[in-house]
Design a binder for these strands. Structure first.
Length: 720
DNA sequence: AGCGGAACGC
DNA sequence: GCGTTCCGCT
C-alpha cells in the first residue's frame, strides 16, 4: 500500500479509485442525498418518507442549494439537481415515485450501499427516526481496507499519539458536514456552521468528539481526503464510536426495527440479529452483504479487528474473501469477482460472536423537524454569499459524552502498522471488487437510433445507434455485474453502466448487459456499489488535483427500458423493499446448493418478495445426496463453466478490462511467488483459521488457494 | 413537475 | 465517470 508514503494510510491501492477517474472521487449526488437524509438537521429539507428507500425533498431549492454548496456550484438549482437525479434512473440508483412530488426512491435492492450498511430508512410516518445511523457521510465513503492504525489513517501531520489528535481531526472533518467549504473562501460550510453558532454545534451528534481540536481552521487538509471518518469510526470502534452514534442521537445504534425498516436485510438470520451489524467494513463486498450475513468467524484475530484495526493477515483476508464470496452468492453476483481466486471456498458462515455494532445508541429524535415552514429563509436567488443558516441544530444532538470511548486504539498492542501478521512483502492486487450497476434499461428512445435530432448539435457522436434494444440479451444472464476491475486502475465510481456502452455498441458488439425484459429486475440483480469512492473532501479547490480527462465524445445515454416512462419496477422495487431480509446466506450452503442458480436469465426470477436472496433451491438434480467430494467437483465444474461463460460475456463487455486484470494477476503470481509461499505459514495451516479443520478435503486445496491469495494481497500491501 | 438529449466541464 | 447546464417537450 502506498499509503505510508504520501498519505500514511494502510490501504491497498486497490482500495482506492484510480486517479484516472477523478470524477468518481467527488461526492456523488446520491451520497449526498443520503447524507442529508441521515442528518436530522436536514429533515425539513429532505427526509425519508413512505416506503423504504423513498424520500421526499421537502425543500427542493434548499437541497439544491446545499448540493450546490457542496459542489461549489452556486448556480445549482433544483432543476439541475433533478436532472442529475434523473440520470440515476438509468443507473438505477433511484427512481421517481410517481405521483408524489419531489419524491424519489432509492433502488436499494439493486444498490447495496456497501458503506451504508446501516442506513436507516425508517419512514417518517412510522415515527422511526429518520436519520440514518452510521452512514458515512459523503466524506469518506471511500472504501478502504480497514486502516491498521490510526496513524495509518491520519496524515503525517496529525498528531497520532494523542487520542485527541485523532479524534479531533476526525471530528473536525466530520464537522464539515454536508456542505463543503469552497476553497475560494466562500465557505459555505462555515456559513452554515457559523449560522449554527460557532461553527460547531450544528452537527452535534457527530461532533461529539470534537472536544478540542481547535477550530476547524485548517483542518481541511489535515486528514487525507481519502480518509473516511466514518469508516474510521466504524473501524475503530464499534462501541463508543461517536459517529456510530453512540451518542445521544444514536437512535438506532442498533436498529430496533431492522427487519422492517431497513432496506437491508439487517437480520436475515435469526439469532443475534445482525451480529454483523457492525462488522468491520472490510470491503465493499463485505459491507454489501448485509452485515448480518457476514460469515465472520469469531476468530481470535477478529476481535482486534473489530476493535481497532485490521491487518492484512491471512485470517482477515480469508474472512474478507469469504465474505466477499458469500456476497457473491448471496446476491448472485457474478463470480467474476473471484476470478482471481477461483478456488477460494467460503465455508459455512459463522456468525460473529458478538456484535460490535453500535448498540445502545439511542437517538433521541427531538421534536422532529419542527414545522419546516418557519425557518426557510434561504432563497434560491441568493447564493452562497448569504447565509442561510437553516438548521439551528437541534440541541438534542448532544455530543457523545465520552468521545474517547471510541478511541481507536483499543488494542494498542496490535498496532496494525507493524502488525506482526502482516504477511507478504510484495504488493499484490486483489481484485477491486468493484460493483457496478446494471446498465440502464433499454430506452424508449430506440426510435432515435441513428437519427440525431439533437437540438443543439447534429453530431451524433458515438453511440447513438447503439441500442438495439432487445437483442442484447446475450449477456445478461447474471444479474449483477460484479466486475473485478483490474487492480488499481479501475475507475469508476460505484456505479457505472458499462462505460463504453455507446461506442462499443456502435461497433455492433453488444456491450451492455441489458436487462432483457422490462425493468423487471430480478431480485438477483442486486447491485452492489462501492460507494466508497467519494470523498467529501474533494472539493472544488481540489479539482485540479485530478488530471483532466480527455475530452471525448459522450456516448449516448442508453435508452431506458420503460417505454413511456412507465416504471414497471416501481412495484417490484417496492416489494423488494418490503421484502423480508434475504435468506441468510450462510444458510446457503456454499457447497450444497447450487451456486449460480440465480445467475440465470431474469426469467428465472420468481419470487419478487425475496430480492437479493440467495438463489432458489437447487435445481432438481441438486447435489443433496451427493458425496461431498463429488459435490465439490460438480460445483467446481459448474463454477468454472459459469466463469467461462461470464468471461465470455465479459470479453464482449469489457474484455479488455478483464484481460488486464487477469494479466495482472498472472503477473502477480509470477512475481510474488516467493512470498506466496512465505505466507503459507499463515492461514493455511490447519486449524489456524478455525475452519480449516472442518473443511472437507476438497476444501483444503481451496484453502491453500485462499491462503495464497491472502499472501498475495499482503504482499501487495506491503509497501503501504 | 418531470423527462431526457446534448454539449461541456472536471 | 459524474455530473452541470440548457433546453425542448409533456
Amino acid at each position: 500500500m502506498k499509503t505510508s508514503g504520501d498519505s500514511g494510510f494502510a490501504f491497498p491501492d486497490w482500495a482506492y479509485k484510480p486517479e484516472s477517474s477523478p470524477g468518481s472521487r467527488q461526492i456523488q449526488l446520491w451520497h449526498f442525498i443520503l447524507e442529508l437524509l441521515r442528518k436530522e438537521e436536514y429533515h425539513d429539507v429532505i427526509a425519508w418518507q413512505g416506503d423504504y428507500g423513498e424520500f421526499v425533498i421537502k425543500d427542493p431549492d434548499e437541497v439544491a442549494r446545499l448540493w450546490g454548496a457542496r459542489k461549489c456550484k452556486p448556480q445549482m438549482n433544483y432543476d439541475k439537481l433533478s436532472r442529475a437525479l434523473r440520470y440515476y434512473y438509468n443507473k438505477r440508483i433511484l427512481h421517481k415515485t410517481k405521483g408524489k412530488r419531489f419524491t424519489y426512491k432509492f433502488n436499494f435492492n439493486k444498490l447495496v450501499l456497501v458503506n451504508y450498511p446501516f442506513i436507516d430508512m425508517g419512514s417518517t410516518g412510522s415515527g422511526v427516526p429518520q436519520s440514518a445511523p452510521p452512514v458515512p457521510t459523503g466524506a469518506g465513503t471511500h472504501f478502504r481496507f480497514p486502516p491498521s492504525t490510526p496513524s495509518d489513517v491520519l496524515s503525517p501531520n496529525e498528531d497520532l499519539r494523542s487520542p485527541g489528535g485523532v479524534f479531533s481531526a476526525v471530528a473536525r472533518r466530520m464537522a464539515r458536514g454536508s456542505v463543503s467549504d469552497c476553497s475560494d473562501g466562500t465557505s459555505v460550510n462555515s456559513e452554515i456552521e457559523d449560522a449554527n453558532g460557532g461553527g460547531g454545534e450544528e452537527r452535534g451528534g457527530e461532533r461529539g468528539l470534537n472536544g478540542g481540536g481547535g477550530g476547524g481552521a485548517g483542518y481541511r487538509s489535515i486528514i487525507h481526503p481519502r480518509l473516511s471518518h466514518e469508516s474510521l469510526f466504524r473501524m475503530y470502534g464499534g462501541a463508543g464510536n461517536p459517529n456510530t452514534h453512540p451518542g445521544p442521537r444514536g437512535h438506532q445504534g442498533h436498529r430496533v426495527h431492522p427487519d422492517n425498516l431497513s432496506p437491508f436485510p439487517v437480520s436475515p438470520l435469526p439469532g443475534p440479529g445482525g451480529a454483523g451489524l457492525l462488522a468491520p467494513p472490510l470491503s465493499p463486498a463485505l459491507s454489501m452483504t448485509p452485515s448480518s450475513h457476514l460469515p465472520y468467524t469469531p476468530s481470535p484475530s477478529l476481535s482486534p479487528m473489530l476493535g481497532s484495526h485490521f491487518s492484512f493477515n491471512p485470517e482477515d483476508m480469508k474472512r474478507y474473501l469469504q465474505a466477499h464470496h458469500q456476497s457473491v452468492y448471496n446476491y448472485h453476483l457474478s463470480p467474476r469477482a473471484f476470478l482471481h481466486y477461483p478456488n477460494i471456498v467460503v465455508p459455512q458462515p459463522h456468525r460473529l460472536a458478538h456484535d460490535n455494532r453500535e448498540l445502545g445508541a439511542e437517538r433521541e429524535r427531538g421534536g422532529g423537524g419542527g414545522g419546516g415552514g418557519g425557518e426557510r429563509e434561504r432563497e434560491r436567488g441568493e447564493r452562497l454569499g448569504l447565509n442561510s443558516h437553516r438548521h439551528p441544530s437541534p440541541l438534542s444532538q448532544s455530543h457523545s459524552p465520552h468521545p474517547h470511548s471510541a478511541h481507536p486504539h483499543p488494542h494498542p498492542h496490535s498496532h496494525p502498522i507493524n502488525h506482526p501478521l502482516h504477511l507478504g512483502e510484495e504488493p499484490t492486487h486483489l481484485p477491486p471488487f468493484k460493483f457496478k450497476l446494471q446498465p440502464p434499461p433499454l430506452g424508449r428512445k430506440q426510435r432515435d437510433v441513428g437519427q440525431g435530432h439533437h437540438p443543439r448539435h447534429s453530431s451524433l457522436s458515438s453511440g447513438s445507434g447503439s441500442l438495439s434494444s432487445s437483442g442484447l440479451g446475450s449477456s445478461l444472464s447474471f444479474g449483477s455485474d460484479l466486475s473485478s476491475a483490474s487492480g488499481s486502475a479501475s475507475g469508476s465510481g460505484l456505479i457505472s453502466n458499462s462505460s463504453s456502452t455507446g461506442s462499443l455498441n456502435s461497433a455492433g458488439l453488444p456491450k451492455i448487459k441489458v436487462e432483457p425484459i422490462s425493468d423487471i429486475e430480478s431480485e438477483e440483480e442486486v447491485e452492489v456499489t462501492d460507494i466508497s469512492d467519494e470523498d467529501p473532501d474533494d472539493r472544488c479547490d481540489e479539482y485540479d488535483l485530478f488530471s483532466p480527462r480527455h475530452p471525448r465524445p459522450r456516448p449516448h445515454q442508453p435508452p431506458r427500458h420503460y417505454p413511456n416512462g412507465t416504471s414497471h419496477d416501481e412495484d417490484l422495487d417496492e416489494d423488494v423493499f418490503k421484502a423480508p431480509a434475504p435468506p441468510p446466506p450462510g444458510l446457503l450452503p456454499f457447497f450444497t446448493s447450487q451456486p449460480h442458480a440465480s445467475r440465470g436469465p431474469p426469467a428465472l426470477k420468481s419470487e419478487p418478495a425475496e430480492p437479493g436472496d440467495p438463489p432458489p433451491p437447487a435445481a432438481p438434480g441438486s447435489t443433496k445426496c451427493i458425496p461431498l467430494k463429488l459435490r465439490f467437483k460438480r460445483r467446481w465444474s459448474e463454477d468454472q463453466r459459469m466463469e467461462a461463460m461470464e468471461e465470455q460475456d465479459d470479453k464482449k463487455v469489457r474484455g479488455e478490462e478483464m484481460e488486464r486484470a487477469r494479466e495482472k494477476e498472472k503477473e502477480r503470481q509470477h512475481n510474488g511467488g516467493i512470498e506466496e509461499n512465505g505466507a503459507s505459514s499463515g492461514p493455511s495451516s490447519p486449524g489456524q483459521t478455525g475452519y480449516d479443520g472442518a473443511l472437507p478435503l476438497a476444501q483444503r486445496g481451496v484453502s491453500q488457494e485462499l491462503h495464497r491469495a491472502t499472501a498475495q494481497l499482503s504482499l501487495e500491501n506491503k509497501d503501504c
